[in-house]
Amino acid sequence: MSGPGIAAVAAQVAVVTAGAPLLAGLMRQVRARLEGRAGAGIAQPWRDLRKLLRKEPITPVGTGPAFRAAPALLVATTAVTAALVPFLSTDTPVGRNADVILVVALLALGTVALALAGLDSGTAFGGMGASREMTIAALVEPTILLAVFALSIPARSTNLPAIVAGAVEQPARLASPAGLLATAALAVAVLAETGRLPVDNPATHLELTMVHEAMVLEYAGPDLALVELGAQMRLTVLLGLLTSVFAPWGIATGPSWAALAVALAVFVAKTALLGAALAAGEVFWAKLRLFRVPELLAGSFLLALLAVTASYFLSGE
């Protein structure tokens, strides 16, 4: 147990929780500026959360434990994921448990909790959103697993810190066909998992086209604040995962305070850059027809599968 290791875990959770609304604000601001609007400012999501947290809690009549537990569960699973994934350091006390399968399972747990809450609300929209979310999740989770597996083959481990530490030492792994294919697959999966264009439109007010928003329509007040925060944290975690796995430079590999400070600055910069790039890309995309989404996700799954195959054959086994 090293001091910097414990500090790294604490800093990861803190920076993801505090930074997630800022990342969402940054992405909205980039989009607004590119569309010629002034935008509400980067801190607007935080102001929204503060507003929601001050409201009285309201639960719809007839909802059960699934509806009440989901927001907390969503935030909790995402916070645990933020502690596990090596955003700042590969040398942390929880590093040994940071298995890829565990991380994907934690994210899936949050998704399922929200889908159950959507069903629990008993409205047509909750059920419709849950059904759509599960359709997408069923295609996304295997893709994330496979894409990271492709990188785990050269590292000979499904442990995320081991994969990242290996990539820091041997950057050539990332430039291999397997690494590039896996990057592409994971990028598409992250778009779908976080409900961004072209899969879902986070800015829409059209309730019939919603996926994620339709599930959470019945939430209000502090519960809605948690759901929003959870969604923003998931976006940050998944973008952070993408940067950590495919651009691991700057992540501390030993118990050094200086390296940790550098890692923190680099992580914030990388994630903000990726988020801004995603927001800029979204300006030029249109939303896919819902029935086309499985085609896109099947394509990304295929890329991940190719990445695993390439990784297996090209690693000379």
């Binding site: 569309e35 030029f284 249109a286």
Partner: peptide, 16 residues
């Protein structure tokens, strides 16, 4: 119509 398929930049221009 562009906005409803998520392509909001053209909507901004049309509104201009």
């Amino acid at each position: 119509l562009c906005n409803d398929v998520g392509h909001s930049v053209l909507n901004s221009q049309a509104l201009r």
